[in-house]
Design a protein around this nucleic acid. Structure first.
Lengths: 124, 124
DNA sequence: CTACCTGCAAAAGGTTTGCATAGCC
DNA sequence: GGCTATGCAAACCTTTTGCAGGTAG
């Protein structure tokens, strides 16, 4: 992958924002530092970063995709009230992974786990 | 929900097809019995059936959504080779659910788990 | 110099919606 | 009869793509 200023800015933006931004939000943010950035470039770079396992793509039904700078195995929790996505790390995921591989006789490449409900903030 | 012929046909189509069809495939199939069905009607009914917990919507990044007639807690495995989605039932999901609820201090409404990899057929 | 990257704008693809009509209860 | 569902087509929104020019190595 050849260096590009745009890609660096996009990656930084994702790493600095733990909020699981959409392509469009990233575009808006990075554009402040690089005014003639184009949305197409954002999408192209996001695709490459995902391809190279440098970020994760989170796909939520009926909403634009979001991107996550943390590529370690973890799951996502979407709050149906406030719309925030939070990361959850569970050691048990490894166990589940091998359990599924045995039980289903499959080879798992990736885990996309999205839980939906109400977050601690909104439960109050 | 008022009865409609279209909705009945759509629901039957999903229940009869264990293949996790897309809205468009459902449209094509049901149209054989009901030639002047429209795609919009299919989408509207799918949304209602999901709303009433009669079917499940499976969202796969970069692909059209699919629909599942089985609403019991289970996970999905997408084969990256052949594209088939298979259901996997794991008792351990219940444990995971309460684990997450405790650990993350959240209330879970729904579970969307999509594993990707190679299925037993394609592993050969 | 060459291959990859960018900006722009147009196109694609899936899904939603407005409107007038038809069908259930 | 009233309210919901339908068909049709246009609109929507996110994402992708073609092209001509720019930039890293």
């Amino acid at each position: 992958m050849k260096y590009s200023k745009q890609r660096e800015l996009i990656l930084n933006c994702i790493k600095e924002n733990p909020r699981h931004l959409t392509a469009d939000s990233i575009y808006e943010i990075v554009k402040k530092d690089n005014p003639n950035l184009s949305l197409g470039t954002v999408y192209r770079n996001l695709a490459q970063l995902v391809e190279h396992d440098m970020i994760l793509k989170i796909s939520i039904s009926g909403e634009p995709d979001r991107y996550d700078g943390n590529v370690d195995d973890h799951l996502h929790f979407l709050c149906l009230d406030c719309g925030k996505v939070q990361d959850l790390f569970l050691d048990e995921l490894t166990a589940i992974r091998s359990l599924v591989e045995q039980r289903g006789d499959v080879k798992i490449e990736s885990f996309d786990i999205l839980l939906k409900g109400t977050c601690s903030e909104c439960k109050k």
